[in-house]
Design a protein around this nucleic acid. Structure first.
Lengths: 209, 209
DNA sequence: TCTTTATCTGAGCTTTTGCTCGACAATCGG
DNA sequence: CCGATTGTCGAGCAAAAGCTCAGATAAAGA
């Protein structure tokens, strides 16, 4: 007869934390994994190291995560969730018929906020960790929604809002990513560059050829 | 007494191909590795698979490459070499006091050419394979040189050529990468987007606030 | 307090995979 | 044509890393 009721019978179901200490264990595991990734990269990440750094045993890791990938997935999911939340907040700032300056400012400051968070970790996540199909679709959906929302705000300022919005969004995302994430450690002149980025997007929006 | 003279004594020196058939073996190995990366990603790449797909034995792989990483390094080095060659060619197009339109056109078409080559492979290389410090420095140097060259051409068209050139280069690189590499398989409207990209860069260069 | 449930432990099993090595085959030089 | 050199082969070794499990400990419940 089975000795334990809830844990697992043959390698599958992960335990759901209920007591406070187990909650802390889960967080310690996630934090340890994130720090190892940020400091040493994906190649250095293994479950034994995670357990040691989190101050728990390897067994505990597998009580809460079915496998190694699930740990990284949770880190990734939390980042995506922050992006989605930030999108919802920023969308409000585009409600009352904003002018080009406002649109550009909201867009750039939004991506800067997103990319300022734990740059080393996200550098590794974006350049060393392969996303699952589901995660790729979630990223694509967030991008599509952002473009759609910006296109709406651009209705009076462009004769092809969707294309214009695509340029604005992709540029703000890619450049803030490059300066804040890829160049993490080269603080250079974040202020100057983001300011210049706004100038470029504004020029694109307002200048007639 | 040692049986073989050149091969290796204790695991280090890789053989240098001299006969035609061994040259073909090396190319087959590199091609197989590239195809596996492009089709299945870094996680699916192992030396036994590479050998099988290349139609050679695992022993042959280690005759020409000291370890697995060296195979990927060679693929990476060839791509970097193409980028550097393309830079030298394009630099010539910026010699005779080019106008903003010319500068933008050369820049965008250069990055488009670079990113059109084997998009799936390079998507994996840029999002799953960790670069060595040396490779990162080589990429940084190429970027710095490109910016410097563009800044020179901009001398008469900007009061801060270096900052302006940084925006132009990083934007052209990042956006063409996103549309041609990340979105590989979504051919969408490459023509339209790169055209719009040129419009944006041109507006930034020529419009006064 | 005593039972039950929740959580934690870590030695070690198992699988994966990078890589070696001794033998064999092809090509070349003279 | 016949050594010498270059190139090929693939079973299997060894290390790394993912993961399991039986039992110990802590908290909750009665």
């Amino acid at each position: 007869m089975p000795k334990r009721s809830p844990p697992k019978q043959s390698g599958k179901p992960a335990r759901q934390a209920v007591q406070a200490r187990s909650l802390a264990t889960v967080e310690a595991i996630l934090e340890a994994a994130a720090r190892i990734l940020a400091e040493a990269g994906w190649a250095a990440l293994n479950t034994n190291i995670i357990a040691k750094r989190a101050g728990v045993s390897i067994g505990s890791v597998y009580e809460y995560f079915p496998d190694k990938r699930a740990i990284v997935d949770e880190i990734l999911n939390r980042h995506l969730a922050r992006g989605e939340a930030l999108f919802r907040e920023s969308a409000n700032d585009l409600n009352s018929g904003p002018q080009p300056v406002d649109i550009v400012r909201v867009l750039v400051s939004g991506f800067v906020t997103l990319h300022r968070d734990d740059p080393h970790l996200h550098q590794v996540l974006s350049s060393e960790v392969a996303l699952t199909l589901e995660q790729k679709m979630r990223v694509a959906a967030l991008r599509a929604n952002t473009i759609k929302r910006v296109a709406l705000a651009l209705a009076d300022h462009s004769d092809n809002p969707h294309i214009t919005a695509t340029l604005l969004v992709d540029t703000a995302d890619a450049l803030s990513h490059r300066w804040l994430v890829d160049a993490a450690g080269t603080p250079a002149s974040e202020k100057i560059m983001t300011n210049e980025l706004q100038k470029m997007l504004y020029a694109y929006l307002t200048c007639e050829p």
